[in-house]
C-alpha cells in the first residue's frame, strides 16, 4: 500500500504540492487526476525518492522509497517514457536496469515479449515513437514483478489499440492484488480505467472516491430527443428528475440514468429518437473542480501551506 502523508513540496516561491494526504490501496486501479501543473508528476517524483519533500512523507508498505532493499522488486514506475538514453538499445536499457536489482537476464526478454517490442529490442531508443517508448517504460516497470505500480500519463502517445491494451493490463494487475496508481489529466480516460479516483488541483486534494461515487454525483444528464417532449418531461418530473430544455427538440435530464429515462419514455408512450448519456459532464465537473483551485491559486501566488 502506498501512503502519502501530509506531503508538501515547495520550489522557491511556488508550492507544487500542498499538504496532500491520501492512500492508494492494493487490488484496485487508482486514478490520479488533475490538470497539467497540478502537482501529479511532482507527487510521483517524490514517491520515487527523486525529489525531496519539503514536509511530510511517502511510504510504501511502511517504508520510504530510498530504504527499499530491492526497489524494482517492490515498485515499478513509468514516469517519462522519453527519459532513456537515446543511444542505447531497448534491450541494453532493460539489461542494465535488471542487473542493478539482480533480476535474471531472461526476464528482460519476457517483458520485451509481453509489451510487444521484442522485434525492436536491438534498436536504439532514440528512434522510438512515443508509443514504443511508453511500451519500453512499461516493460521497465514490470522487470521486477513489483506489487506497486506507478504510471504517469501512460496513455499519451498510444494508439487506440494500445490504450485498450493498457486498460486491460491495469485491470489484470489490480486483479492480481497489486497497487496500481495511474495519473492522467483526462477524466474520461480515468472513468474507463480506474476504480478509485483521487482529484488534485494546485497541489491540493480536491476529492477522492470510487468512480461510481464520483459519476453518481455528475452522471445525471442524459440528452433526449423525442417525439413528444411535453409528455416525456411530465413523466420525468413525476420521477423526481430535473429536466432542462436545451433546444426545440431536445431536453437534458439529470438525476436519472439513461436506462431509466428510456423506460419512463416507453411507459409514457413517447418515441425516443436519441438518448445520449452526457459523458462530457464528467469532464465538466472535473474542470469545474480544478478550475476553482486554479483560480484560487492564481489569485494567491506563493500560497502558504497550513503550518
Amino acid at each position: 500500500m502506498l501512503k502519502i502523508d501530509h506531503l508538501t513540496k515547495r520550489y522557491d516561491e511556488t508550492i507544487a504540492v500542498n499538504d496532500l494526504d491520501f492512500e492508494v490501496k492494493p487490488g484496485v486501479v487508482t486514478g490520479f487526476l488533475g490538470p497539467n501543473g497540478s502537482g501529479k508528476s511532482t507527487t510521483m517524483r517524490i514517491i520515487l525518492g527523486l525529489d525531496h519533500p519539503t514536509k511530510g512523507d511517502v511510504t510504501i508498505d511502511g517504508k520510504k522509497y530510498e530504504n527499499l532493499k530491492s526497489p524494482l522488486h517492490e515498485v515499478g514506475a513509468l514516469l517519462d517514457a522519453k527519459a532513456v538514453h537515446p543511444g542505447r538499445t531497448a534491450r541494453n536499457h532493460l539489461r542494465a536496469l535488471a542487473a542493478s536489482n539482480r533480476i535474471k537476464p531472461s526476464r528482460v526478454d519476457e517483458v520485451l515479449e509481453f509489451t510487444g517490442i521484442a522485434s525492436v529490442a536491438n534498436k536504439k531508443v532514440g528512434g522510438f515513437s512515443l508509443g514504443m517508448s511508453q511500451r519500453l517504460g512499461i516493460a521497465a516497470a514490470l522487470l521486477g514483478d513489483p506489487q506497486v505500480l506507478l504510471f504517469d500519463e501512460p496513455v499519451n502517445g498510444l494508439d487506440p489499440e494500445g490504450i485498450r491494451w493498457i486498460r486491460e493490463f491495469f485491470r489484470s494487475l489490480a486483479k492480481e492484488g497489486r497497487t496500481v496508481f495511474v495519473s492522467s489529466h483526462l477524466m474520461s480516460e480515468m472513468a474507463l480505467t480506474a476504480d478509485q479516483i483521487i482529484v488534485i488541483g494546485r497541489g491540493k486534494l480536491i476529492t477522492q472516491g470510487s468512480v461510481d461515487d464520483l459519476t453518481a454525483t455528475v452522471q445525471g444528464t442524459v440528452l433526449v430527443r423525442a417525439s413528444n417532449l411535453t409528455t416525456l418531461t411530465k413523466a420525468l418530473l413525476a420521477k423526481k428528475a430535473t429536466v432542462q430544455s436545451t433546444s426545440d427538440t431536445t431536453i437534458s435530464v439529470s438525476g436519472l440514468a439513461s436506462d431509466d429515462v428510456g423506460q419512463i419514455a416507453f411507459n409514457a408512450g413517447v418515441v425516443i429518437h436519441e438518448l445520449t448519456p452526457q459523458r462530457a459532464s464528467l469532464e465538466e465537473v472535473f474542470m469545474e473542480l480544478t478550475a476553482d483551485s486554479l483560480e484560487y491559486g492564481a489569485s494567491m501566488p506563493g500560497d502558504v501551506s497550513h503550518e
Binding site: 532493499k69 530491492s70 522488486h73 543511444g87 542505447r88 541494453n92 542487473a99 539482480r102
Partner: peptide, 24 residues
C-alpha cells in the same frame, strides 16, 4: 527478498551502461 540490491549489482549495471553507448 533474497536478492537485495548491493554495490556489486549496481557496478554490473553501470558497466553495461558504460559499454552500451557510443560516447564511451
Amino acid at each position: 527478498m533474497s536478492s537485495d540490491q548491493n554495490l556489486q549489482a549496481v557496478v554490473k549495471s553501470e558497466w553495461i551502461k558504460f559499454r552500451s553507448v557510443r560516447s564511451s
